[in-house]
């Protein structure tokens, strides 16, 4: 089977983001960019399914600016077989991303699409579910374990109350949660090999998708800052402050 893995280029999770002074967005100049951490988990899972003989081809897809090719190269260095870059020089919203991925799925015919549960920049947590709806496929979101069993995927999902197990018919969309696996680092030889793996380039227009945005961002502002507090001497002082100063216990 083929597996499609969308990989998003986002500000690295270690960067402390700064809101631009003109409130139009956040500072992206000279900021370290990386693959969305949940997408690393998706790539890793696809590779493990390939190693287990369940999958024979992994296609990494990224939608966005030219530099998204670096994100695809990272996926190729980890072990994906080829890449598709959908070049687009503006923001794309989850619905448009899902529409683009649907077109690619119609062309490529994957049995599984493994999507990150959320991108750590916009924190939308939408794309996978939207894609499943557009394809008319089943979905298993926020998964911490999956087993492919014939024409079904058995998935354990992280839910508010604990864990839930469902089974979904193939083809289907999976969205990955943190505990699914620990992504590997690409080895130097694999980074070299990845340079020779093919990346096709296409565009939303080629795929017949209108990527124009529906949400207008009126402004991006700083969240309220907390005032810094005090250090307490010892536990007795802490309990006293909680009872008599803050009055929360």
């Amino acid at each position: 089977m083929k597996i499609l893995v969308p990989v998003k280029r986002v500000i690295d999770y270690n960067v402390k983001v700064r809101v631009k002074a003109d409130q139009t967005g956040v500072e992206l100049a000279n900021v370290k960019m990386s693959m969305n951490p949940f997408d690393e988990i998706s790539v890793e899972q696809a590779i493990r399914l390939k190693e287990a003989g369940v999958c024979d081809e992994i296609i990494a897809v990224s939608i966005g600016v030219q530099q998204c090719q670096e994100t695809i190269r990272t996926a190729l260095a980890m072990g994906a077989d080829r890449g598709i870059h959908v070049l687009h020089d503006g923001d794309v919203e989850p619905l448009a991303v899902a529409k683009i991925l649907k077109e690619l799925a119609d062309k490529e015919g994957p049995s599984l699409i493994i999507v990150g549960k959320q991108a750590i920049d916009d924190d939308s947590n939408q794309t996978g579910q939207m894609l499943a709806a557009l394809l008319g496929w089943g979905q298993a979101t926020f998964v911490s374990d999956i087993q492919v069993e014939g024409e079904q995927v058995k998935a354990t999902r992280e839910v508010d109350g604990g864990l839930e197990t469902i089974s979904v018919k193939l083809p289907s969309v999976i969205t990955t949660d943190l505990r699914l696996n620990e992504p590997r680092y690409a080895s130097l030889p694999n980074i070299m090999k990845a340079k020779k793996k093919p990346i096709d380039q296409t565009s939303p227009a080629d795929l017949g998708v209108d990527p124009s945005v529906r949400l207008e961002i009126l402004k991006v502002s700083e969240p309220p800052q907390r005032e810094s507090g005090v250090k307490v001497e010892d536990v007795a002082d802490l309990v006293d402050k909680l009872r008599n100063t803050a009055k929360v216990i």
């Binding site: 809101v19 956040v26 920049d121 949400l215 207008e216 009126l218 402004k219 969240p223």
Partner: peptide, 13 residues
Amino acid sequence: PIYAGNAMATVKT
């Protein structure tokens, strides 16, 4: 909130 709550976006749909 976006970026782990480090920025607040005002959006209009």
